[in-house]
Simulated assay, not measured.
Amino acid sequence: MPELRLRINGEDHKADVAPQVSLLDVLREHLWLTGTKKGCDQGACGACTVLVDGRRIVSCLALAVQYEGREITTIEGVDHPLQEAFVRHDGLQCGYCTPGQICSAIGMLSEHAAGAPSAATEALAPEALTPAEIRERMSGNICRCGAYNGIAEAIQEVAS
């Protein structure tokens, strides 16, 4: 198996993995970075969301070899005001989805600031991040406990 070199949370890592191994499995099973969760393993729940070069991806659908030489950020490498806001607004219950929710929210805030469109609004000014817009942009992340109101409130607080 070829040696894979990844830059994760500002540190260089090596792993001997087959080319078909997902980034999620490398993170959890080879590098023991278990903050990123395996939910559905089909890209539908968002629990495995990480940031690659600042953009959010679902790591269960990403082959690890695709991300050699890129900057990967997992929840272990996050230091963001969203983390405290999630606690203040009860944006978590069991906590299983929380790492993916936070990574996704960080990526979503960057997308919004860059003017990326969404299905919730026809025209969006960077300062107009409404609750409906937050819910639309975070719709790829499922919370089985139903903490959506707290999640949206936390994101709204940090966005404003």
Rank of each mutant, 00 (worst) to 15 (best):
G54A: 09
I57A: 02
P2R: 08
R144Q: 07
S160C: 08
A105P: 07
G146E: 02
E136I: 00
A147G: 01
S139G: 11
Q83L: 13
A116Y: 10
L33K: 10
C60T: 08
G69F: 05
A159G: 06
N149L: 15
T73V: 13
E127W: 06
V50Y: 07
A152D: 03
R28D: 08
A116G: 01
G46L: 05
S139P: 10
C40T: 11
I57N: 09
C97P: 15
N9F: 14
A64V: 12
G140W: 00
L61F: 02
V65G: 03
P81E: 12
G39M: 08
G95Y: 13
A44K: 12
Q66D: 08
C45W: 04
A85I: 06
V87F: 11
Q42H: 11
N9I: 04
A159M: 06
G115Q: 09
I72L: 11
A44N: 04
G39V: 15
A132C: 01
C103G: 07
H89W: 11
G115V: 01
A85P: 14
G46Q: 04
R144A: 09
L129K: 06
G43K: 02
A128N: 06
E111I: 13
S118K: 13
A120I: 05
I151P: 00
L109N: 03
C40M: 14
E84L: 14
